[in-house]
């Protein structure tokens, strides 16, 4: 299981697969103002990423191993909470 809830923080860890999308969605529906920590993410599935982009929770977690060489996905997640639909 790569989605863990710790109080008001939802932690994504390791390889987040398509099954984690529903868990994350439910957790964010329950606590819309929860923060999501991506510090320990190694790989993220499109199904999980699009939920982060759509719901724009506060993203936490400093630099860690990147799941794409250009650091592009990380900036995508960070920029997504500016409210712009693209970046």
């Amino acid at each position: 299981m790569s989605v863990r809830i710790d109080g008001r923080t939802i932690l994504l860890e390791g390889r987040c697969s398509v099954e984690d999308a529903e868990t994350l969605l439910l957790a964010l529906q329950e606590q819309p103002d929860a923060s999501v920590s991506v510090e320990k993410v190694q790989k993220i599935h499109m199904a999980v990423l699009q939920i982060l982009l759509a719901l724009k929770p506060e993203i936490m977690g400093a630099d860690a191993s990147l799941f794409l060489s250009q650091n592009i996905f990380r900036s995508l997640i960070w920029n997504s909470d500016t409210g712009a639909k693209s970046f």
């Binding site: 199904a47 699009q50 759509a54 724009k56 639909k85």
Partner: peptide, 15 residues
């Protein structure tokens, strides 16, 4: 526009 929380289907790709 991104769907609202209630309207999201977790297993459908909307991106």
């Amino acid at each position: 526009a991104w769907p609202a929380s209630k309207a999201i289907e977790a297993f459908s790709c909307f991106s």
